[in-house]
């Protein structure tokens, strides 16, 4: 079975999905990623789906689950690079990817995570330096 590689860049985990994933590969990625978030203590996850020519309900659900899991582990997930045809198809399919943040490309995704993280730091410094759960 193929495995999707997870790269660590600074405080961010970058997952670039390059293969037509089987369902099993998708589930494996979900597990691997949860482990890596805990191991590295990263606060941001970028999932790059530029190379995916379709996203069906299974992969859609995987993306939602990853977002939820990483939220629990205090990491922000951004899905980047969705192709127009994929987005149009998802809308028609009725899949809304609730709770997932998206950006056009990796660069914008990083900005998004940096901004979210900066807000959090500001908030902690301004109000209560010891605050653990400071999501606005």
């Amino acid at each position: 079975m193929e495995r999707v590689p997870i790269l660590k860049i600074g405080d961010i985990l970058l997952v670039s999905i390059q293969v037509d994933m089987s369902d099993q590969t998708a589930v494996q990625l979900q597990e691997d990623l949860a482990e890596r978030i805990v191991d590295t203590g990263c606060h941001g996850v970028i999932i790059d789906i530029t190379a995916l020519d379709i996203v069906d309900s299974f992969v859609g659900r995987m993306l939602s689950t990853i977002a939820s899991i990483s939220k629990v582990l205090d990491a922000e997930t951004v899905v980047v690079g969705m192709r127009p045809a994929v987005a149009i198809t998802l809308v028609e399919l009725g899949l809304s990817l609730n709770g997932i943040r998206t950006a056009l490309n990796v660069e914008r995704g990083m900005e998004l995570i940096a901004a979210a993280h900066a807000d959090e730091l500001d908030y902690q410094l301004d109000d209560d330096p010891d605050a653990e759960t400071a999501t606005p």
Binding site: V78, V79, M82, V91, T102
Partner: peptide, 12 residues
């Protein structure tokens, strides 16, 4: 409407 939703999915 669908375009707006699709654009959101893409991050715009």
């Amino acid at each position: 409407l669908k375009t707006v939703v699709a654009a959101r999915l893409m991050g715009a």
